[in-house]
Design a protein around this nucleic acid. Structure first.
Lengths: 221, 221
DNA sequence: TTGACTTAGTGTATATACGACACTATAGTG
DNA sequence: CACTATAGTGTCGTATATACACTAAGTCAA
């Protein structure tokens, strides 16, 4: 038992985990195995431990649910309405993470009935205020595609320009002119040819590229 | 006394309160009257109450320190390094507020020795990790001047275009061409002439403008 | 071996936005 | 009425973004 002179809220970290799969933007939800909202879908997350920072807590949860580490993770917003959790006062610091399409591997977390990837247009009703969190995460994601090199965080080690363009088209939900896209993306000077080619059908092979500084997300305006 | 089955951190709200005064961007600091860091300057803030939201807590602190309400206030970032407060684990949700230049009125808060407005280039050493918070707040402020109508939040009810331009020049620390600035700001169609003029010297009087939707901060790209 | 199919890859012309730049207008003051 | 100080205004060149269509190269089947 832990005793304080003044009341303290609980603090949790929830994560919106995005990846691209089947040419769709998908995010990870867990089916809650315990109260409250038992049986409902929710964002993965959990209480922070007293000896870890907020980001460390987010990375721990991320690895517990997906097995991945070292991916892009950024703080999104902090939610603290008094009644957002029926049990007690809970402050939730939300993060969002982007996982490259070749590193997806779900683990079943201990406190979840089920885990699954959902596309934006097939989301179930969510527990708590998680729909609000999701709306803000998606807004941030779309905005950052425009003014940063965030999209590279979805790419595997080697990729073609067509694949990269599809990432933009999938998330922004609009078609982009191929020539203008290539002009623009190459002018950023963030990617380089690997020298390899991808051949996957009865047509000209595509040059493969890699990101020069994979971890870095730059503001490009 | 309050007891919990698991340890809970304390949660505070700190605010970076900006205003423009003497043609300089200034922010409010308080000299701490109690431990820890007694006698050191720090951002105004305090513990959240269990029945108020995070934004309500920030507005309460803002009004306690300055007497103003109804001004622009936005969540900045949440800080939660385990050792950032020597007393106990403290999570701080930081906000920043912008106060119009004609509404500045400091009240002495109960737990502070002194209160004062500081320009960016005359900041004292700060308590906790408040210098980090300040750096992030300033970065956000500068960025948002460019792609939103945030600057209007500093303006009094009526103002001249020259005054508005000075706001941009002061915060961005660079001179702007008068004609280009006017072209740009008027093309936004966010302000309109009031019909009044300001006469304050031996020269042509300046037209006064007002913001069409004072509370609103739009993204303008 | 050749032709048909499929995706990769490339350049130009036009429209729009942005930045540099200098003079006239109008009030107050002595 | 002349001097001074700030308000207010337009054009042109450059850079940036957008629209748009054909050739290149590999596979496979006739």
């Amino acid at each position: 038992m832990f005793t304080y002179e003044y009341p303290h809220p609980a603090v949790t970290v929830d994560i919106v985990i995005y990846t691209l799969r089947d040419d769709e933007l998908k995010l990870l939800l867990i089916k809650r195995g315990g109260k409250p909202f038992k049986g409902k879908w929710a964002l993965p997350g959990g209480f922070i431990q007293m000896d870890e920072s907020l980001e460390e807590a987010a990375r721990r949860e991320l690895e517990e649910e997906t097995g991945v580490s070292g991916v892009f993770l950024e703080q999104l917003y902090t939610y603290g309405e008094p009644k957002r959790d029926p049990r007690e006062r809970v402050i939730t610091v939300a993060y969002y993470a982007l996982i490259p399409s070749d590193r997806v591997e779900i683990r079943a977390a201990s406190d979840a009935e089920a885990v699954g990837w959902f596309a934006m247009d097939e989301l179930p009703k969510l527990a708590f205020d998680h729909e609000e969190i999701l709306a803000m995460a998606h807004e941030r994601l779309v905005a950052k595609l425009d003014y940063s090199t965030l999209a590279f965080q979805f790419m595997p080690g080697e990729f073609t320009l067509t694949q990269l363009q599809q990432v933009y088209e999938t998330i922004l939900q609009q078609e982009i002119d191929k020539r203008n896209f290539r002009k623009w993306i190459l002018a950023l000077e963030c990617i380089e040819e690997t020298g390899n080619e991808q051949r996957d059908g009865p047509h000209r092979p595509a040059k493969l590229y890699r990101v020069k500084e994979p971890g870095k997300v730059e503001i490009i305006k």
